[in-house]
């Protein structure tokens, strides 16, 4: 129906197979459980790095599977760089 006269100059697009969706969902659910489990064990100074490694791995799964990496990193970079521009230069002594 609607695509009967789609623009013939448009670029072909890639369709992600269903199995990829299922794999990423299961892997990220496992990562969440792992984060919860890690929070119940006191690993000293390793607590935060381990939680960050799991979170980064989960984010990387989404990014590498679906995200158009360069454009999206620019946008995410804006959020992170400008937010940290505040946190890293804030005059914390007054808090």
């Amino acid at each position: 129906m609607a695509d009967e006269h789609r623009n013939e100059h448009a670029a072909p697009h890639h369709i992600t197979p269903l199995t990829t969706y299922i794999f990423v969902f299961v892997a990220r659910a496992a990562g969440t459980l792992l984060t919860w489990f890690a929070s119940t064990v006191d690993l000293g100074w390793m607590n935060t790095p381990i939680a960050l490694v799991i979170a980064t791995t989960k984010a990387a799964l989404v990014i590498l599977t679906w995200v158009v990496v360069i454009g999206s990193f620019v946008w995410l970079g804006v959020l992170f760089v400008l937010t940290f521009a505040d946190y890293l230069t804030r005059f914390w002594a007054i808090y």
Partner: peptide, 18 residues
């Protein structure tokens, strides 16, 4: 429009440099 959000926070205690 994505680069200007903290102008809503100038008196909230953010870094003067940012």
């Amino acid at each position: 429009g994505f680069l200007v959000w903290a102008h809503h926070m100038f008196v909230a205690g953010i870094s003067v440099y940012s």
